[in-house]
Amino acid sequence: MTLTAQENRRAGAPQRARPPRRSLRLDRFGLPSLLLAPLLAVVVGVVGYPIVRTIWLSFHEGEYLISGPFNGLDNYTALFADPYFVAALIRTTLFAVVCVCCTLLISLAVALVLDVGSWLTRIVTVIVLLPWAMPRVASGIVWKWIFNDQYGIANWLLVSLGFDQFQGYAWFNSGFSSLVAITIAVVWHSVPFIAISMLAGLRATRGEVLEAARVDGANFMQLLLRIRLPMMKPLLTILGVMSTIFAYQSFDHFLVMTTPPGGPSHSTEVLSLLTWLQAFTVLDQGAAAAMAVVTFVLLAGITAVYVRLSKEDK
């Protein structure tokens, strides 16, 4: 006879040395609240309050980082009239789309390789996750060196492969090529976590259904596209949301790899960097708060769309 935890608890209760009533109540209500109190303090104090405050700030003047009078939607209308902001909004979105596509596809490929069992899988999995731990400032510096115009290994490799136009090619002289280099650095950083999660998802799809289909003669691609990926849909949705949000949030790589930050001539400004510069270099916290709110709303909207899409197809 096996008892579930619930039944066990019931069965065990009478034999338990009965604690006095008061401590029972403490156990049931007091203790959990006590245990949760520090977490709630942090969540409310350092996360909840700042969100509310940012929204509040976005409706007020805030030059020199001092809160001014209420100014309605002025910060927002000014933002959307600002060509640099609109350009950054579009640029960030394109950058995120490219990052997410590359991240998901590469992660899937890596996960599929790791899914095939081998005595090396364990150690390769650890190596795959290693870039996730590397400080973004350090990896930004290394990637900038790899893409150095005269001595960078990227140009050397491209030239050795026969692309002679990359001889001394200055990646960071134009917005587009800077973004290409930054995308590679960011994708290198975000693939590990997504790939390892996908690997866990792929492993969870192994079972009777997959075996049955294999016995029926389905090939690798059929198994993947018809059975495994559809089974992983909820996970893929979440990973899509995560990588989108991480791409929109990219900050460190942009601050480290572009000179001046967001340059040359504003051509690599993305939302997070622009918001930060607006707040702490231009010292206009009203406009910066409005940018942060726009980012926040945009990401919440994207998340909602992903969730809706994954539910509709079911």
Binding site: R53, S272, F296
Partner: peptide
């Protein structure tokens, strides 16, 4: 998942 930019300004204040 929260954008860090939402937190950075009020925390500064």
């Amino acid at each position: 998942m929260l954008p860090q930019t939402v937190l950075v300004i009020p925390l500064f204040v």
